[in-house]
Nucleic acid binder design. Structure first.
Lengths: 222, 222, 222, 222
DNA sequence: AATGAATGAGGGTTCATTCAT
DNA sequence: TATGAATGAACCCTCATTCAT
C-alpha cells in the first residue's frame, strides 16, 4: 500500500477490487449477509466469483472489508465538517444535521450497521482496522461539548457518551426502521417534509438535552 | 382461531404449532431471515420440517406469523400498563421505562423488527393482521400527551408522532446497535449500570422534549 | 437395524441406499477418492446428490461405508470356504487360490484398499465397524496353520502374521500394480495364462514358505 | 538436457524446475493425483503456479515427469549395487535387501507407483521415457539367476519374471498397504523390529523360491 | 397429525489453466 | 524468467420444498 502501484494492469486490478467492494456494499445492504449472494455481488461488479475470492478471501472477509469501508467513508465525510467552536450550540446543530443527512443519503450505511449488529458485531470485533477507525467515535463531538461547557451554555454534568448516543439514536432509528414505522404510524416517513420536521425536532431536542434547564433551546440560538 | 379447539389431538396440534412459532422467533432473531434455516427451526421446536409447512405453508408465511406474534405480545404487555393520567409527566416516565425494559428483556423483538426493516417491511405490509395490530401504535401515548396538554404541563404544539419516535429511537437504538456501539465507544453497553444511566438520561430527555421551554424537567416532576 | 423395516417406501429407500453404495464402490475404484465426484456417483446410482448426503452424510463418510462394505463382502465370501483341516497343505492351497481369485474378480476391492492406504488408512482407523470386521484377519488362516503344525507338515516356528502377509502380498501386488508391471515387464499380466502361471507359482511358494526345509512342496502334496 | 546450460539465469531456471519437480513428488505422494493441487505444489516449491505451466505444460505432464523422475532415481540407486555373481544366493539376498530398503526409505516411490496404477498406468504407457527406463526391469536380476543356474544352485525351470514379481510383491505390499494392514493385524508394521523380521522372512522365502527342492535355504547360504 | 424419502436449484468455494505485462 | 490478474467449470454441500404413506 505504501508503495504506489503503477502500470495499467495494476490500476485495472485496483478498479476491479473497488468495483467488487462497492457491489458488495450494495448487495449486502439490499439482501443482508446470508441473503447477499456472492454471485450477485460479482455480477453487479461486472466481474466473476473467482475474483471476489482472489481479492477478499471469503464472503465473510469481504463483509468485514465492507464494514471498514463504509465506516471510513463516514469518517472522511465527518472530517470535512468545519465547525465553529466559538458557537457551540450552532456547531452542535450542524453536527446533528450532518449525521442526519448522512444517514438519509447513505441508507446502505445504516443497513450494513444493522446487519452487523444482527450478527452481534462479530466482524467489527475481529477487525483491527475497525478498532482503529472507531477509535474516535466521539472525536468530533468532544470539542463542541467542551467549548459549550467552557462558555457556560452547556451543562457541566454531561456524559459525552450520552450525547453521542442521543444524536445517533434520533438520526439512526428513523431511517433504519422507517419501513415498519411508516406502516405503524400510517405515514410515509420517507417523505421529505416529514424528514425536515423530524430534523427540526431532534435538533431542538439535542440542544435541550445539553443545555441548562432554565435556558430555552430556540431562544439561545437565535 | 375464533373457534376454540377441543380434544387431546387438537391440543397437541396447537402445542406443536406454538413450539414451532417460538422456535422460529428464536432462530430468526439469532440467524436472520435468510440465515434462519427451516431445518434449524423444526429441530429447535423438536418437530420436523414437514410440520412447519403443514402449519405455516412456507418459510415466508412463518416469518410473517412471527412478526405478528411478537407484536401481539408487545401489545398485550403494553395493554397491562396502568398509568395515572392525572400525573402525565409521571405516566410518560413510566411508559418510557416500560418500553425500555421491554426492549432490554426481549432482544428477539428488537432483532425481528430490524430484520423486517432490512427487508423493507415487506411482510408487515402484506399482513392484514399486522395492520390491525399496529392500528394504535400511539394508542397508549395519546391520552398521556393530551392529559399533559390539558394540564398545561406539556407543550401545545407537540406532534404525537414525534414523541412516539423520540421514545422509540432512544430505547431501540441502544439495544439494536449495542454490539457495534460497545466496540466504538469502548464500553460494554450491556452492562446494567450503563443501562440504568441511559434510562435515567432518556427519561429526562423525553420530558424535556414535551415540556414548555421555561420549565425544568427534573424540577417539575419532583 | 434390529427392527426390520417394512412397507414399500422403506424397501425402496433401502434400494436407493444400496444403489448409491454400489455406485460409490465403482466410482471410487475407478477415479480415486478426490477424483471420485459426488455427482458421478449419484448419476451412476440413478439418484441425485442430495440422497447421497441424506443417507451417508458426506463424501468422506460414504467412502468409509464403501470400505466397510467391500470388506464385509470379502469376509462373507471367505466365510463360505469349506476347507478340510485334515489336509492342511491342500487347505492352504485352496485358501491361496480363493484369495487370488477374489482379487482377480474384484479389482474394485484391490483399488479401494490401495486408495485407503494412500490416505494413510484414516477412514479405516476411524471406523469402529472396520475394527470389528478386521478383527479376525487371520481367522481362516490360523486353524490351517495349527493343523499343519499338529501334523508335523508345517514348521513349528511359523509367524502367522508372516504367512498372512506372504499370501496377501503375492496375490495383491500382481493385481494392484498390473498396469505398470505390464509396461515394465513387456507382458500383459491381465492375460489369463499369465495369471494361471502366477497362481501356480505362488501356490507352491507359499507351501515352501511354511514347510520344513527338507520336505519338497510339490512332492508332499501329490 | 543433452546440451549443458550455462550462466546464472539458466542455473536458476534449472533449480526452479527441480524444486517444482521435487515438490510435485512430495505433494502427489501425499495427496494423490486429483488431490494434489497445482497450487500446493508451487507453494511447496516456493514458486508460483505459472512456472509450473512454463516448465511442465500441465498437471498431467508434470505427473508424468514425476513418474519418470522417481523411476530414474530408483534405477540409479540400483545401478550402484555391486553384486558378486560368484555367490548368486548371497547376491540375491542383497538385491532383496536393497529393494526392501529402497521402498522403506522412499515411501513416495511406492505411493506414486500406486497412484499411477490406480490410473491404469496411463501416464507410464504414454511416456517414451518410461519405456526406456523400464526397458530392463529384470536387468539386475537376470545375471544373478543365470549365474545361480550355471552353478546349479538355482532351479533350471525358473521364470525370471516370476522371481521379479515375487521379490517386488513381498517388498512392495508390506509398505504400500502398511496402514490398513496395521489396523487389521493389530500391529504396527512401521515398527523397525517388525520390518527386520519381515525382511529376514522374505529373504529366506525368495531363496526357497529359486532353489531346488531338496536344498535348504538357510543351510546353503551359511 | 405426523413423518421418512426425495428433489432441483443454488449455496460458497476451489479447480486447473491462460492472459498480459 | 517470472508473476499478478483473470476465468469458466466444477467442486462438495445445503437450501426450501414436496411426495407418498
Amino acid at each position: 500500500m505504501a508503495i504506489k502501484k503503477t502500470g495499467i494492469r495494476a490500476q485495472q486490478a485496483d478498479q476491479t477490487r473497488a468495483r467488487i467492494l462497492q457491489a458488495a456494499v450494495k448487495v449486502f445492504a439490499r439482501d443482508g449477509y446470508s441473503g447477499g449472494r456472492v454471485d450477485s455481488i460479482s455480477k453487479v461488479a461486472e466481474s466473476n466469483d473467482r475474483m471476489l475470492y482472489y481479492y477478499f478471501g471469503s464472503k465473510e472477509q469481504l463483509f468485514t472489508c465492507v464494514l471498514e469501508h463504509i465506516y471510513e467513508q463516514f469518517n472522511q465525510a465527518e472530517g470535512k465538517l468545519k465547525l465553529d467552536l466559538a458557537a457551540p450550540a450552532q456547531a452542535l446543530r450542524e453536527l446533528v444535521a450532518f449525521i442526519w443527512n448522512y444517514y438519509v443519503k447513505h441508507p446502505e450505511f445504516v443497513a450494513i450497521l444493522s446487519i452487523e449488529n444482527l450478527h452481534q458485531g462479530k466482524h467489527a470485533r475481529q477487525s483491527s482496522e475497525m478498532r482503529r477507525l472507531s477509535g474516535e467515535a466521539v472525536g468530533v463531538l468532544r470539542p463542541i461539548i467542551e467549548a459549550g461547557q467552557a462558555q457556560g451554555v452547556f451543562r457541566q454534568d454531561i456524559d459525552l457518551k450520552h450525547v453521542y448516543l442521543m444524536i445517533a439514536s434520533l438520526c439512526y432509528f428513523y431511517n433504519s426502521n422507517r419501513h415498519t414505522l411508516s406502516s405503524f404510524l400510517g405515514e410515509d416517513l420517507s417523505n421529505e417534509g416529514q424528514q425536515q420536521d423530524w430534523l427540526a425536532f431532534i435538533s431542538d431536542l439535542v440542544l435541550r438535552g445539553v443545555m441548562p434547564d432554565s435556558v430555552s433551546a430556540e431562544g439561545f440560538i437565535n
